[in-house]
Computed example of a mutant assay.
Amino acid sequence: MPRSPHAADHVAALTTIWREVLRNDHLDATADLFENGGTSLHVLQIVGRIYDTLGVEVRPRHVFLHASPQDLTAFLVEDPASERPAGRRSDDDRTHSRPRR
């Protein structure tokens, strides 16, 4: 459940994104992306739309781990470091990056 007006705005925006990407107007804030036909391609579309709509960089793994608008918002609210402008990386991102081959 959103704890702030900012979180409520995020839930509403993410729910709209889920509905548009999955082409299903009946989805709500608790709709699981993958239980509703989502694929990895949809995840990439969602990541792009989140940036376009909210100006927030969300990594694909965040969407995989938090597959509903409500869960993803809770993650963003609990971990403000994950909610940063695009192009900025945290120490956490560098730690979990795969080594280059």
Rank of each mutant, 00 (worst) to 15 (best):
R61V: 12
R23S: 14
H6E: 13
L27M: 13
A12L: 07
H62V: 05
H96D: 14
T53Q: 11
R88S: 12
A13W: 00
R3E: 14
W18T: 01
G37T: 04
A7W: 03
A74E: 14
P5V: 06
T30A: 15
V47C: 09
A67C: 13
V43T: 03
R19K: 15
S82W: 02
H42P: 03
G37E: 11
N24V: 00
H66A: 12
F34Y: 13
D92S: 11
R61T: 10
G37C: 04
P60H: 10
V11S: 02
A67G: 13
A31Q: 08
F64L: 11
L65T: 11
Q70I: 06
R49D: 09
G38V: 01
A13Q: 02
A29S: 15
R59M: 13
L41T: 12
H6L: 13
L41C: 01
L14A: 02
E57Y: 07
L76A: 13
A13E: 05
S82G: 13
D92W: 14
N36I: 02
A86W: 09
M1W: 02
G48T: 07
P85V: 00
H6T: 13
L33M: 12
L14Q: 01
L33S: 06
I17Q: 00
G37N: 06
D93A: 11
V56A: 09
F64G: 03
S4A: 08
T39R: 01
A12N: 05
V11D: 02
A8S: 11
P85I: 00
V11M: 07
R61A: 15
H62N: 01
S90M: 11
A8M: 02
R98F: 14
D9S: 13
H42Y: 08
G38S: 07
S68M: 08
S90Q: 09
L65Q: 14
G37Q: 05
H26M: 10
R100I: 12
H66P: 00
E78Q: 12
